[in-house]
Every structure is written in C-alpha cells, then in structure tokens.
Design a protein around this nucleic acid. Structure first.
Lengths: 161, 161
DNA sequence: GTCTAATACTTGACTGAGTCCAGAATCGAT
DNA sequence: ATCGATTCTGGACTCAGTCAAGTATTAGAC
C-alpha cells in the first residue's frame, strides 16, 4: 500500500508486539476505537470507512474478534444493544448506562479495588471476570423527561473528557 | 376456555393482583418459567407448547414484556446469548455463567447485602439497578476440558435444587 | 527486489433473536 | 349473552452476527 511509512506508529507497535499481523484495516479500527470508546461494530465500520474508504463487515468483526482475543480491547454487551468495544483493558472498571438514551460511562470499581470479583458461593466455578453494569437515567434524560432521545451509540461519552 | 377453573391458582392470583389480564398463555408461561429458570423466550415457547398445544412467538415476547414491566419476572441478557428470564425478583441476586457450556447459576450478592449498588462516582445518574455477572468455567467443564458441551439453555440449573 | 506460503479481506448468502402490523380470537364487565 | 378492550396469531421484516469461497495482502525467504 504505502512503501513510505509515515512513522513507526504506536498502534502498529502494539499490534506487532502482540503477534497480530498489521493491516490498514486493523490500524484504522484501533484508531477509531481509541477516538470513540463504547462504539458498536457498525459504528466502527462507519468510522473506518471515513478514513480508509471501505471495509467489509466481516473484516470488522474478524478484527474485533482477534483484538479481544489478544486482550487488546474489551467487548461489552449490554442488554438490548449490539456489542460495544473499548480499548481500556486491564483495569477492572465498570459501566454505567442510561436506560433512555443508551449513553455509557466508565466508572471505577465501586469500592476502589476488586471486591466484586469474589462471589459468596462460587459453586466450584473458576471465575475469571466479574462484569458490573449500573443501570439508570443520565442527568440529561432526567431533566428532559419528554425528550428521551432514542438510544444512539454516537451518544457514548468518555468518563474523562 | 374452561369455565371450571381447577383451583384459584396462586399464579393466577399473582397476575390479577398486578393488574395483568389472565390468559391461558400467560399462565402457561409463568408456570414454565418457575419450572425452568433462566430459560430463553424460545425455550419457554417450547415448554408452553408441550402444555397448551400452541403459542405464537409474538405472544411469548409480548407476555414476557408485560411481566417484566409489572416486575413479576426479570430479564437477563448475557453476552452472546438470547435474553433469559427468571421469576426471582426483588432480591438483589447475581449470576454466574460458564463460558464453555453456558450454564447459569444464581448467587447471592457478594458481600451479603447490596454493596455493589453504590457506584463510586455516579456521574449524576439516578441508578436503579446494578447488574453483576461472574464469568468462568463450571466444575463439569473444568474436569472435562475436551467435552465442552455446546451452550444449551436446557443446561441451566437452579441455585438450590 | 522478487517470490511464495500464510494470513487477512471481500462478497454474498444465511441464521437467529426480536419487532411490526393487521386481522381474528378471547377476556371480563355489564 | 353481548360488547368493547385487550390479547393472540401469522407473516413479513429488521438487525447483529456468522459461514464459506474466492481474491488480495502481508511478512519472511531467497
């Protein structure tokens, strides 16, 4: 594609060090995701198309699958919505979702550490993850009860902006 | 349908007191659900058909929607699976799901009370529910690494049987 | 720089969960 | 028993995600 690489990109390095083959599509998806956390596969496809022209749905799903597998991104699947993705991995943070508009926030673990990871009775399970989702109504929707904007994924916001 | 009702059924009472019109389909769905917690809409349709002959998919979804709305049942939607339903409401219990076979257990809240309900920073949200899902591998799948049975909803078990 | 095997991407068809709609059936109050 | 309101049926549809076959790209060997 381009013989003259513009700079030994940080994202590119990340992929290589994790044994993921580097392609234009994968770079674009990674970049799109870092700009837009909590995006759906479809959102990312749109975002990527705006940058590199075209990408197939299959490539998007495949790439996301690989990245999740390599632990470079995380898949979140809230009830009643398509799967969403984020590039914050490693820290045990949770999510706060508005029932009316679907806006999603990151929040740190309730008690600061990892208390939720230990179930009272684990039934002999080997537990590897505790997923916590807080449901409610965001300030905007509380103030405008009639104007419940339909859940758009573009309405996702980062926790610290 | 039957003018001679066999007994002022507990389920029937429950529906009436919650202002839900009583129909054969609704009773059957409620009963099916109490016998088979964590069932999908499709599971319930099958179960109901075995009892009252036929039911349309729409009736199942509609009924489940009404019941969830009236807070008589609860909808759970784990990643990668159809929505599941259970008749345990009110208590703040959580779920434990096996990654390989999809088996789902009820577990009581980690610390005994409702600690997970309070987020560290609520972003101005009006939080009404904290959903906690523990992911891992069940004892059966741990002992039989090759024989990972495909996720069947019929493999759901109750916490206390 | 060129070649080649392995890997990734594209296209198009398909599945499964869930929704929408219009007409038929049922419920329950009178 | 009748009637209005509610619910159920059946069929078409949407949306997220997967499968499979063929083409293109990557990365390592020459």
């Amino acid at each position: 594609m381009s013989t003259v690489m513009s700079a030994p990109d940080e994202v590119e390095q990340l992929l290589r060090t994790h044994g993921v083959q580097v392609t234009a599509q994968r770079l674009a998806i990674m970049r799109a995701l870092s700009m837009r956390p909590h995006a759906t596969a479809d959102d990312l496809a749109d975002e990527v198309r705006a940058v590199i022209g075209t990408i197939s749905r299959q490539a998007v799903y495949d790439t996301l699958g690989v990245l999740v597998d390599k632990n470079l991104i995380r898949r979140i699947q809230p009830a009643g919505s398509a799967a969403r993705f984020e590039d914050r991995v490693g820290d045990n943070h949770h999510h706060l979702i508005c029932r009316s508009c679907g806006t999603m926030f990151d929040i740190d673990c309730a008690v600061g550490s990892v208390p939720c990871l230990t179930a009272d009775d684990d039934h002999g399970f080997e537990i590897d993850e505790a997923e916590v989702v807080y449901w409610g109504r965001c300030p905007t929707c509380r103030n405008a009860p009639g104007t419940t904007s339909s859940p758009t994924t573009s309405s996702t916001r980062s926790s610290n902006d």
